[in-house]
């Protein structure tokens, strides 16, 4: 997929032109925005700042100011490289070794276990399904249906620090709900997602865990009845 740069420029210009702070009392202090923009905060903290920037034009401007300032300072100190995010201090999850990924993909194709129903994305990371080390288990009781107004799906098996993507669908694979980047191994499906489903209908749900070591582990498809 290709980003339309002309369109991106138009959107960026618009995003930068709005300087409104809708909830100024929630604005992080400038020092925190500066530290986030310089890559001095952990990703989890940066996410909170970026979440605020999405809604606050004033703080987005402060972020751009910090970046511009930092890049200028980096240039002055002899470097030609602009300031970059903290790759060395807070590394993104490392890619799994190429050979292991290739082997895993081959194994998946060979055994027909490839997660083919997953909604098509532009690209997909290698998936180690049911790897030897990590297996995702459902924590939802199998013997009773989930209440619609509190349909909490829960799972276990991935190490602390993992994040999760979740997909919930009907038996005929119609997507009911999706969640990404969950930081806890649980998620409550909103009741409205079940609108139109008969009592006792079964829903399928799957979890993809992104482990702190960079691997991605997919769960089996779990089946749960809805009240």
């Amino acid at each position: 997929m290709i980003i339309d740069h002309q369109e991106s420029e138009r959107l960026r210009r618009g995003f930068a032109a709005d300087r409104h702070a809708p909830r100024p009392e929630e604005c992080p202090p400038p020092e925190q925005i500066g530290r986030a923009a310089r890559g001095e905060l952990a990703p989890r903290e940066v996410r909170d700042v970026v979440e605020h920037l999405a809604a606050c034009g004033e703080c987005a401007e402060a972020w751009r100011l910090a970046r511009a300032f930092e890049e200028e300072a980096a240039g002055e100190e002899g470097g030609t490289e602009p300031a970059t995010p903290p790759a060395s201090r807070w590394p993104a999850r490392a890619f799994a070794p190429w050979a292991a990924a290739a082997a895993a993909v081959l194994a998946l194709v060979a055994t027909g276990l490839w997660w083919s129903e997953r909604p098509a994305g532009p690209t997909q990371a290698p998936v180690y399904r049911q790897g030897a080390e990590v297996t995702i288990h459902s924590q939802v009781p199998e013997d009773k249906p989930l209440p619609r107004d509190h349909a909490e799906l829960a799972w276990s098996g991935a190490p602390e620090g993992s994040t999760y993507d979740l997909s919930v669908s009907t038996e005929d694979l119609r997507t009911l709900d999706q969640a990404e980047d969950l930081e806890e191994p649980r998620y409550t499906v909103p009741a409205k997602a079940f609108d139109g489903l008969a009592s006792g209908a079964k829903v399928l749900w799957r979890v993809e865990a992104h482990l702190p070591d960079g691997r991605t582990v997919a769960s089996p498809t779990f089946v749960t009845a809805i009240e």
């Binding site: 986030a36 940066v46 993104a92 999850r93």
Partner: peptide
């Protein structure tokens, strides 16, 4: 890098 994700993600 900012958000702690692989580039592909």
């Amino acid at each position: 890098e900012f958000l702690g994700w692989k580039a592909k993600r």
